[in-house]
Amino acid sequence: MEKYSMVIPKVAGNPTICFRPIRPSDLMILEQLHADVFPIRYESEFFQNVVNAHDIVSWGAVDRSRSDGRSDELIGFVTARIVLAKESEIGDFLSYDSSRSDQTLVYILTLGVVETYRNLGIAASLIGEVIKYASSIQSCLAIYLHVISYNNPAIHLYKKMSFKCVRRLHGFYLINGQHYDSYLFVYYVNGGRSPCSPLELLKVAATYMRSGLRSVAARLRRNEEKMPRWPKCKETRCLITTQSRRNLTTECSECSCV
Rank of each mutant, 00 (worst) to 15 (best):
Y173W: 07
Y183A: 09
Y173F: 13
C238M: 11
V78G: 08
L120C: 02
R219K: 14
E254G: 04
R41D: 07
F185C: 06
Y107E: 15
L202V: 12
F46D: 04
G60Y: 04
E235I: 03
M209S: 09
C196Y: 07
G13F: 02
R210W: 05
N190E: 09
Y158I: 10
L74I: 07
V189Y: 02
K232P: 05
S44D: 10
D97E: 10
Y107G: 09
G13S: 12
S58P: 15
Y187D: 11
G191L: 04
A53E: 08
M227S: 15
V113T: 14
S215F: 10
L74H: 08
Y144Q: 13
G171K: 00
L126N: 10
Y183Q: 05
R222E: 13
E43Q: 11
I148D: 09
P9M: 00
V7F: 00
C140Q: 03
D181E: 03
L94E: 08
K10P: 00
H146V: 09
I40V: 13
Q103G: 01
C165L: 02
L33S: 10
L201K: 15
G192M: 04
L126C: 10
Y117S: 04
A35K: 15
A217G: 03
F185N: 11
C18D: 15
G171E: 03
V83G: 04
R237V: 02
R210H: 13
F185D: 08
F163M: 07
T16A: 10
S71C: 07
I29F: 03
F172Q: 09
L220H: 12
T242Y: 00
A80S: 15
Y208L: 05
Y188S: 11
S194F: 01
N190R: 01
S215T: 12
G13I: 06
D92I: 01
V114F: 00
R214M: 12
V204K: 15
I40E: 06
Y144L: 07
R219L: 12
L201G: 02
V78L: 09
Q138F: 00
V78M: 06
S215G: 14
A35E: 11
G13T: 07
V83K: 10
I122V: 12
G191V: 05
Q178L: 05
H170T: 14
T242G: 01
I17Q: 06
Y144W: 15
S135E: 13
M6Q: 05
S162L: 02
A53K: 15
M209L: 14
D36C: 07
H146R: 05
Q32N: 11
A80W: 13
H156I: 11
Y187V: 10
P198S: 03
R229H: 07
G121Y: 00
V106C: 12
K86S: 08
G69S: 04
L84Y: 02
Y144P: 05
D102Q: 03
R100V: 02
G191C: 05
Y183F: 15
R210I: 08
Y133F: 14
S5D: 12
R210N: 07
F19C: 13
H170P: 08
N49E: 09
S194R: 09
C255W: 00
L248E: 03
K160V: 00
L169K: 13
Q138A: 06
Y180M: 05
P24N: 07
N49Q: 11
F38R: 12
A217I: 13
Q243N: 05
Y4R: 13
M161V: 01
